[in-house]
Structure formats: structure tokens, C-alpha cells
């Protein structure tokens, strides 16, 4: 026993002991599942989970002929187009206004960041009630203004934007705060020099702030893109894909095909692999662009 402790107490050896738990867990719960997702996508796995039949590319061919899957890709694209530009550009503008460390800005930052720490469940319930066609105060206000009774969460064509807004509401603060932190790192002397040259705040924003925070810009663009492509929580709570699949994102559809009564793990895995490919392609594309810029 004593000898063993002595053996492992050598710095170069004990490093492995320190690392072992994380590596083992990462292998079992990250690396193997990813490989398994690719493997499973080539199989038919019945509900009992006791057997698996090799079917080759069948699941992939089926996916591209599945209207519901194609629709889910479109819906996901819409969510991405609603969310990403506002997160990437809108949050930067807001961040520029609240960069200075005074009491007013600190308070605003604390408020904007608040939704980030709230669960999708609570946020979803909250907005469901606010937009509720009978008891919601937004609906009531619009009605008293004579705008009629709008059913925000059950109107094809409108609901996808409403859910997009709720998702944006929940995550806007994170982008804004990341930008604030980045802008604060920009050397103050740059702004002072611009000030001396008579450049106004708007020019300072475009000529100093924007170029200086480019790495952060790319970081937010990439993470928000990847995040939007995986949208699930808010949809599940507010509409669960309805009405008529108009808010059913790809992950929502994968979830329902994997874990509902019509469970088909192989098919769900094939769709996961397609989604993964899209996310990776977008990320790699942006990463290349970013590196070219530097």
C-alpha cells in the first residue's frame, strides 16, 4: 500500500490520476455517444432496444424525403435568422451604450442579464401567461386598443416569430454582457486620441469599437448560430412545435421521434448526424473566415 502511494506520488504519474475521472467520463458520455450517433444512424432500433438491424443509408434517404424533417429545417432556419442578427449586431449597439462603469449602467446590465439565469420552463410559462388569449395582459392591452383577440401562441405564420422573440428575450443579455466585457478591454487611449481628432461617438463606435472587438464578434456569431440551430427548450414549453408544426425545430422533431410512442432511435440518430454536419459546416466556415480576417 505504502509503495503504491509512493509510486503514484511522482508528478509525471499522478497527473494521470488527476485526469482519470474526467477522461473516463468524457469517453463514456461524450466521445462514445458521438461515435454511436453515427453508428446508430445506420441501424433500425426497435422500442425494446434489444436488437438492431443494419439498414445502411436508409434512414438518411428517408430523412430527406420526410416533409416533417424538411419543414423542421426550415423552421430552424427561421429561428436562426430571427435570433442571430439581433444577438450579434443589436446586442453590440446596446453594449456600447452601457459600457461605462457607472451606477446606471451597472443596474441596466444586471437587468438585461437577468433572463439568462432563468430556466426556460419558468420563462416559457411566464410568456404563455402574458400572451394568453384570455388572461394575458399583453393580449388584454391590445384588445382594449381595439386590435382584436390575437392568439399569439396558436396562429400559424405568427407564432414562430413570437417563440423566436421569447428565445431572444431569454438570451439577449448574454451577448450584450460579453460585448460589454470586450469593449471595456479596448484601450482608453484609442478613444482619447479619436476625441482629440474631433470624432463623434458614432464614428468612434464604427472606427474603434467595432474593429477592436472583432474576435468577440466572431465568438458570439459562432456560438449563437450553433445555439439557434439547437433550439428546443423554449419551443417545448410554449408550443411544443404547434400549431400545425409551424414551430417544430429540428431538435424538437428529433426528440419526438426518439422518445415518443413512435420511437425510432436509428432514424432520430440519422437526423442528429445531419444536424451535427450542418452545425460543424457553419462553424468551420465561420472559423475560416475569421482566421482569414486576422
Amino acid at each position: 500500500m505504502k509503495g503504491m502511494i509512493k509510486y503514484w506520488n511522482k508528478p509525471s504519474r499522478c497527473a494521470y490520476l488527476f485526469l482519470a475521472p474526467s477522461i473516463v467520463l468524457l469517453m463514456i458520455f461524450n466521445v462514445i455517444p458521438l461515435a454511436a450517433a453515427f453508428g446508430l444512424s445506420l441501424f433500425d432500433v426497435p422500442m425494446t432496444l434489444n436488437s438492431a438491424e443494419f439498414v445502411g443509408w436508409k434512414n438518411f434517404i428517408e430523412a430527406f424525403h420526410d416533409d416533417r424533417f424538411i419543414n423542421s429545417l426550415k423552421v430552424t432556419a427561421i429561428f436562426t435568422l430571427i435570433e442571430v442578427p439581433i444577438q450579434v449586431a443589436g446586442a453590440l449597439v446596446i453594449a456600447a451604450f452601457i459600457t461605462k462603469n457607472n451606477l446606471k449602467n451597472k443596474l441596466l446590465r444586471a437587468i438585461y442579464f437577468l433572463p439568462v439565469i432563468c430556466s426556460a420552463t419558468a420563462v416559457g410559462i411566464m410568456w404563455r401567461m402574458i400572451l394568453h388569449s384570455n388572461i394575458g395582459f399583453v393580449t388584454a392591452t391590445l384588445r382594449s386598443m381595439g386590435l382584436g383577440k390575437i392568439n399569439f401562441l396558436n396562429t400559424p405564420g405568427l407564432t414562430v416569430f413570437v417563440v423566436g422573440f421569447i428565445s431572444l428575450w431569454r438570451s439577449f443579455g448574454i451577448s450584450a454582457i460579453i460585448y460589454v466585457t470586450a469593449i471595456q478591454q479596448v484601450s482608453a487611449s484609442l478613444y482619447e486620441a479619436a476625441e482629440m481628432d474631433g470624432a463623434g461617438k458614432v464614428r468612434q463606435f464604427f472606427h474603434i469599437t467595432v474593429p477592436s472587438i472583432r474576435p468577440t464578434f466572431w465568438y458570439i456569431l459562432m456560438t449563437r448560430f450553433a445555439g439557434a440551430l439547437q433550439i428546443f427548450d423554449i419551443i417545448y414549453i410554449t408550443t411544443n412545435g404547434g400549431p400545425n408544426y409551424t414551430t417544430e425545430s429540428t431538435v424538437t422533431y428529433i426528440y419526438s421521434r426518439a422518445f415518443s410512442s413512435a420511437s425510432s432511435m436509428g432514424y432520430a440518430s440519422a437526423m442528429s448526424v445531419i444536424l451535427f454536419t450542418v452545425i460543424m459546416a457553419v462553424t468551420v466556415f465561420m472559423y475560416r473566415k475569421m482566421n482569414k480576417e486576422d
Binding site: 455517444p33 450517433a37 432496444l49 428546443f232 426518439a258 442528429s272 451535427f276 452545425i279
Partner: peptide
């Protein structure tokens, strides 16, 4: 690796 991509095999494991 997004969690959403590995959730099915993770469940099986």
C-alpha cells in the same frame, strides 16, 4: 459536440 446531437445514444448508454 452539441448535447442535442448525442442525446439519443447517451440515453441508450
Amino acid at each position: 459536440v452539441p448535447f442535442q446531437v448525442i442525446m439519443v445514444p447517451l440515453f441508450l448508454i
